[in-house]
Every structure is written in structure tokens, then in C-alpha cells.
Write a protein that binds this DNA or RNA. Structure first.
Length: 331
DNA sequence: AATTAAAGCAACCGCCACTGA
DNA sequence: GTCAGTGGCGGTTGCTTTAAT
């Protein structure tokens, strides 16, 4: 783990943490909180620098950390957010409860990036590789994808420009740090001027989902064993001239940051991911972007533990789409 | 069984943003 | 406005484990 140390470490230990060090750090923080990381090592009796203690706590010892295999839902969320946010691992981590940015980053680099590459998707740009674009029967689908991509990109870029203008004003109004709302997330993203990214990956992931639904060879050990009727759909669509209050009605009960949409009529681009069986809708993730200003919101990815009546939830969404048939979803 | 290569991941560093003096 | 201290983030390293030969 190369490079020069971050501080004077002549008397400080480096490298892997021992169980005894973990115990000391855990016990100290549980009793006193971490307070100043700089002072913590001495107070806790550790021969480590504060930075090392903070890293060990945030990436390993924190009691709310979820460890182990990533679920299919988590993988999809990471890919979708990476398409929007790029390598903003901490921002992505705020959307995956109990996963650390470091763990997500490692998982992306060791699993997802390679898998996307095998699927013909450039993991940096999230655009299809040349080979994928020139597939014999993909022209019409790609054209539709490009249309949606253009809508998303347009909305996102508009939002970035607008939010850069507003950033100074917002900074004075949002002095207290809390979990970032999607608009705040975009604000932070905008200040770093991320390169344009697209959402072709969603469609390729859909293809993977379709293969999984049909296949029973079990060759892909990364995917949880499906039930006999598991279906998995992803889509991007645009609802025209919808009252955002209609969407509020659907999402409001799940504590969504729908307030960002206000109450006026607007065009809304909608990306959704769902997983269902005959009996249940196990997971629904909605990502909405208002055309014009590109304000984003989502439902955070709702799973079976959170959705009391998943089928009704999904029915509400599909009914809404049906009421706006001009660009209804391809189900 | 031994060796080598690849994968996984914890931990590190440098940089940057924020805050208060 | 400037500067130092601090915490957080993203990129990277290198040790350990697993798979392949």
C-alpha cells in the first residue's frame, strides 16, 4: 500500500488491523463517540493515525454496515446511479442503505465493470460498444434508446447549468449537513462538472434480465436463484403533460422527495426497474426527471419489506402510464 | 502437491472542500 | 481575504485468497 504516510508515523502502526485494535476502537467509539479523529487514537490507546481509525470505523466496524453478496437490486441501483453520477461513490452509497462507498467502489471495479464490458457496454460512458451498435437487429431499438438518452441528457445538462447558478445561493440556505436530497445530489454533481453519461446500460441490463428469466442453467452464480415465475423489467419512458400531483399520489406514501416536482404540469421522464413473481412485486425502483429543469427524484428502490401492497403500487403506476398512452411503457 | 495467475478487498495516499480563527 | 486544521472522497496499492495449470 504504497506512497508516503499521511502523517508522522514513526511510532504508528500501519497495515491490517488486529482484533485487539478493532476491539479498542469499537469500545472507545461506543462509549465516547469518535469526536476528533486526530485525538482519538491516543485517547483509545491505539498506535494508529486518526485517518486510519476513521477509515476502519466507516468501512468496517460501523454497526450498521451490511456485508456480503450484493443483491440483484443493489447491482442495478449501482449501475443506474453510476450512469447518472459517474464515480461519485459516496453519492451512490447514499442510495444503498448500509453499504459503504469503498465496498461499492470495489464491487464496481471487480465485478460490475467487467460484466458490463462483457455485455458490450463501455463501463465509463455507459454507451454500447461499436460491436453492440452494429448488431443486425438492434437499429430500431437503438434509435428509441437514443431518443430517451437525449431526453435524459438534455434534462440533466439543463439541471447542471441551472444548479451551478444556484449553488452559491443554496449553500447559504442549506448550511446544515444531512442526507442529500436528489436535487442536492445533482447540485454537488454539477459543481464537479461530470462528463455526459447515458443510460444505454439499462436496456442491456434488461436483456440480461430476460436471459435470466428464460435460462435455468444456473451458470451465472452472481444472480440470486429466481422463483419459477420471476420476471425482471427495466424501461425508460416519458409521460407527457402529467400533473405531478398524480405521481405524488403514488409515491407520496413512501416518503419520496417528490416535493421537488412542485404541483404544476410537466413532462416527466421515467426510468423504472421492477422484479416480480405471480404473487408479489418484490422490488420497484423509479427514477423520475422533470423535463425543462431536469429535477430528479426517485423512490429509493422499494423492496418487499417496505411495500405493504406492492401490486397496487405497480398497478397505480401502470394506470398512470395508460392514461398517457402517447409514450406508454413497453411491458 | 507445487507453482503461477487472477481475483477480491482492506487500507493507504493525495487532493479537495469546509470551517473557524 | 487568508491560512491552518480537519474530514471526506476517489484512485490506487499490495496482501490474501482462490482458481487454474
Amino acid at each position: 500500500m504504497g506512497g508516503s504516510p499521511c502523517c508522522d508515523t514513526t511510532a504508528l502502526k500501519r497495515g491490517p488491523w488486529t482484533p485487539e485494535e478493532d476491539r479498542k476502537l469499537l469500545a472507545y467509539i461506543q462509549e465516547h463517540g469518535h469526536g476528533s479523529w486526530r485525538c482519538l487514537p491516543e485517547n483509545a490507546g491505539l498506535q494508529r493515525c486518526g485517518k486510519s481509525c476513521r477509515l476502519r470505523w466507516t468501512n468496517y466496524l460501523r454497526p450498521d454496515i451490511k456485508r456480503g453478496k450484493f443483491s440483484l437490486q443493489e447491482e442495478q441501483t449501482i449501475i443506474q446511479l453510476h450512469a447518472l453520477l459517474g464515480n461519485r461513490w459516496s453519492a451512490i452509497a447514499t442510495h444503498l442503505r448500509n453499504r459503504t462507498d469503498n465496498e461499492i467502489k470495489n464491487y464496481w471495479n471487480t465485478h460490475l465493470k467487467k460484466r458490463l464490458a462483457r455485455m458490450g457496454i463501455d463501463p465509463v460512458t455507459h454507451k454500447p460498444s461499436h460491436a453492440a451498435l452494429s448488431s443486425p437487429n438492434g437499429d430500431s431499438k437503438n434509435a428509441a434508446n437514443l431518443s430517451h438518452m437525449a431526453q435524459w441528457e438534455s434534462a440533466r445538462l439543463e439541471a447542471e447549468a441551472r444548479l451551478v447558478k444556484e449553488s452559491k445561493h443554496r449553500q447559504t440556505q442549506h448550511a446544515s449537513a444531512s442526507a442529500p436530497a436528489p436535487a442536492q445530489l445533482l447540485n454537488k454533481m454539477a459543481t464537479r462538472l461530470t462528463p455526459p453519461r447515458c443510460l444505454d446500460v439499462l436496456n442491456s441490463w434488461e436483456n440480461l434480465g430476460s436471459k435470466l428469466k428464460i435460462g435455468s442453467s444456473g451458470s451465472n452464480r452472481d444472480i440470486p436463484s429466481p422463483t419459477s415465475t420471476l420476471s425482471f423489467l427495466e424501461n425508460v419512458s416519458t409521460i407527457s403533460r402529467v400533473e405531478s400531483s398524480e405521481i405524488t399520489g403514488i409515491l407520496g406514501t413512501f416518503g419520496t422527495e417528490i416535493d421537488a416536482f412542485g404541483t404544476q404540469q410537466c413532462d416527466i421522464n421515467m426510468t423504472w426497474t421492477m422484479e416480480s413473481t405471480d404473487e408479489n412485486v418484490n422490488f420497484v425502483h423509479l427514477l423520475l426527471s422533470r423535463s425543462g429543469d431536469g429535477i430528479l427524484t426517485d423512490n429509493g428502490g422499494r423492496d418487499g419489506e417496505e411495500l405493504e401492497d406492492n401490486k397496487n403500487y405497480w398497478n397505480d403506476i401502470t394506470n398512470l402510464m395508460t392514461c398517457h398512452p402517447s409514450r406508454s411503457p413497453k411491458l
